[in-house]
Design a protein around this nucleic acid. Sequence first.
DNA 1: AATATTAATCGTAATATTGCAATATAATAA
DNA 2: TTATTATATTGCAATATTACGATTAATATT
Lengths: 109, 109
Amino acid sequence: MGVTKSEIFTPEQNTIAKVAKVLGHPARIAILQHLFKINTCVCGDLVEVIGLAQPTISQHLKELKNLEIIKGNIEGTRVCYCINQEKWSEIKSLLNTFLNLDSKSNICC
Amino acid sequence: MGVTKSEIFTPEQNTIAKVAKVLGHPARIAILQHLFKINTCVCGDLVEVIGLAQPTISQHLKELKNLEIIKGNIEGTRVCYCINQEKWSEIKSLLNTFLNLDSKSNICC
DNA sequence: AATATTAATCGTAATATTGCAATATAATAA
DNA sequence: TTATTATATTGCAATATTACGATTAATATT
């Protein structure tokens, strides 16, 4: 039905999935890469850099803000975005714990 | 329109997003965690372990197979699934490269 | 005050995703 | 052959996502 049955999963599973889901769009990857690249805030040039319409970028930014991956500071008529370093570290740990779930052996049938 | 404009992004951005998208559902996280936990193949018990209907699990398995994250071996009437270790390593590197994009400084407006 | 600039929000269309009942398929067992 | 068992596929309903034009809100500039 388009609705995920979150209630049958653990909080950890839901959190990992939620973070991965937000990273599951190339525009949001591009936004984050750009923020890391220029190493400071972006004030509005994202629309040109990414190549999607302004409302679309705004929507992607909103999703990144919802998970607190980025912060936005209002500067007059502009809003400057930057990575939330603390949150990014958290996400890194969370995903690394999952990604490091290597099986030692590879016994497969 | 529900359609991602993949053509305006780099192959790397699209690949990262595609992998993240597949990891963006708690059922698929749960399936992978279970496969790592038992450290060998799963033959059919996933429906009971996860708690979703059989066709739903089958669909999630299909998505994981599409990205070659898991392999399925037919064993009589059963199919045994296991992690594709090589692919998992690739995914780990891919995501780690992205996750390690720390900015040194935190100059924010 | 009037106008320009920037970003958010609203509304909408097109498509994708989630979940499951029903059914199909394939292999084994009786 | 005829069940039985296990998994895949189909079809569908409900909801979510993506994208963008139009509009709004807020501040700057003239």
